[in-house]
Design a protein around this nucleic acid. Structure first.
Lengths: 210, 210
DNA sequence: TAGTTTATTAAACAATCGTTTAAAAGCAGA
DNA sequence: TCTGCTTTTAAACGATTGTTTAATAAACTA
C-alpha cells in the first residue's frame, strides 16, 4: 500500500489537528468526529490511514520521541564534560519543546496512564533514553565528582524542569496573560540550565519579570 | 440535605476508587460504570453525591489543592530566609506528593486540558499559589541577592522538580522494577533540594542508585 | 485507454457513554 | 407505628463513541 501525494496531505492534516486537539482536550476526551470535522476530512479516513485511534496516538508519540531521542544522541553523546554537554542539550531540548508544545503536552499527560497497547511502547523509549543518561551523565559524574545519582531519578527530573513552563502554560496564561516576549526562550533556557547546574544560589542577574 | 454515616462511607468509597482509576487510566478514559463496579456502589450514587462526573473530579482536585496550599501557607510564609523556608517546604511537599501520588498524577495530567467548567477553577488556585511564591520567594530573593525571577516561571519549575519522580513512576517502574526502598524519599528530597538551591555541582555524596 | 490501486464517501454497526427517573428500602425521631 | 428524610436500586433515556462496510471517485500504471 503506497501513499500518493493527496493521501499524504490528508494524512498530515489529520495528524496536525490531532496534535492540537489532543493537547487541548486530552486524547480520550477528543472524539474522532470532532477531529475529522476540524481537519476537514471524512471520518473513515482516520481509521484508513492509522488503523485506529490509538494508532494515531502512537504515530504522534513516535514522532515526538524520535525527535527528542535524536537530540539526546546529538548533544549528550561524546567525550566532553557532562556540564558542557548538558548546557548544549538543554538549550536544544527547550527549543524543541517550544516548537512542539502540543506534542510535549500529549506525551506528558499520557505518560502516566496505563494502556497495555501503549505502555510497552513507551517503555521501549524510556529504556533507550535511560541508557544515554546513565552513560553520559551519571557515570562520568560519579568518576569526576564522586556524585552518585540514578538515571531514573535525574532523567525525569531534567525533563520535568525543561518542560515545566510548557506543561503549565495553558493554566498560567489564564492567570498571567501571554507575554509574547521574544527573549523569553533564552531567559528560560538560562534559568533551567543555571538552576540545574548551579542552583538558585548560583543565579546572577536573570530578569524574566512579567 | 444532611449525610448519614452510611452515606459518607459510600461517598468515600467512590472518591477513593475514583482517585485510583483516574490516575491509572485517566479521567476521560474512566467510565462511571467501571468506577461504580470497582467501588461496589450503584451507578446512580455517583451523580447522587457529586452531581456529575466533573463534580467528582472537582472534589478530588479540591482536596489535593487544599492540602498543597495549606503546606505552602505553613512552610513558605514567615520571616525566615527563602533558602531556609524552601528546604522545609520541599521536604513536606515531597512527602505530601508521595502520600497522594494518584491525586498528584490526576492534577498534573488534567492541568493542561481545556475545560470551561474546570479551567476557571484551576486558575483560582494557581493565582493563590503564585501570590505566595512571589511574596515569599521572588521578592526576598530580589532584595537580598539581586536575582530576578518570575513566580510564574519558578513556581511551576519547583513543582515539576518535586513531582518528577511521581509523574514518571508508572512508566519507570516498567523499566526499573520498583525499588521499595525505605530511604528513597529522603534521598529524593535531598536531591531536589540540593539541585534547586545549589545545582548539580553542589551535590556531594548522594547515593540513590538502584 | 484499459486496468489496477489508492482515496473518499455516506451509512450503518454495536457498544458504551453520562444522566435521569421513579420506586423501594433503610433509618431516624415523634 | 407512623412520618419524613436519606440511601439504594433497576431501568431506561438519548446521545455519542470507535469502527466497519460497500460503493464511488480519483489517480496512477502499463
Amino acid at each position: 500500500m503506497e501513499f500518493t501525494q493527496k493521501g499524504i496531505d490528508t494524512k498530515n492534516r489529520i495528524v496536525d489537528t490531532a496534535i492540537a486537539l489532543f493537547a487541548k482536550k486530552g486524547f480520550a476526551a477528543t472524539g474522532l468526529r470532532e477531529l475529522a470535522n476540524e481537519a476537514e476530512v471524512n471520518l473513515a479516513m482516520i481509521n484508513y490511514f492509522f488503523g485506529s485511534k490509538k494508532g494515531l496516538l502512537k504515530d504522534i508519540l513516535d514522532t515526538f520521541f524520535t525527535g527528542y531521542s535524536s537530540l539526546m544522541q546529538q548533544h549528550l553523546r561524546g567525550p566532553s564534560k557532562p556540564e558542557v554537554k548538558l548546557r548544549h542539550f538543554i538549550r536544544h531540548a527547550v527549543e524543541y519543546f517550544d516548537e512542539n508544545r502540543d506534542g510535549l503536552i500529549i506525551v506528558l499527560t499520557e505518560l502516566p496512564h496505563e494502556d497495555p497497547e501503549i505502555t510497552e511502547y513507551k517503555a521501549k523509549w524510556a529504556r533507550k533514553m535511560m541508557i544515554i543518561v546513565r552513560e553520559e551523565i551519571c557515570t562520568p559524574l560519579k568518576e569526576t565528582s564522586g556524585v552518585v545519582v540514578s538515571p531514573v531519578v535525574i532523567g525525569p527530573l531534567l525533563v520535568s524542569m525543561m518542560s515545566s513552563r510548557f506543561l503549565f502554560a495553558p493554566i498560567i496564561e489564564t492567570v498571567n496573560p501571554p507575554g509574547l516576549k521574544e527573549e523569553f526562550l533564552d531567559k528560560y533556557t538560562d534559568l533551567v540550565t543555571g538552576i540545574f547546574l548551579e542552583g538558585l544560589s548560583g543565579l546572577t542577574h536573570n530578569q524574566d519579570e512579567g
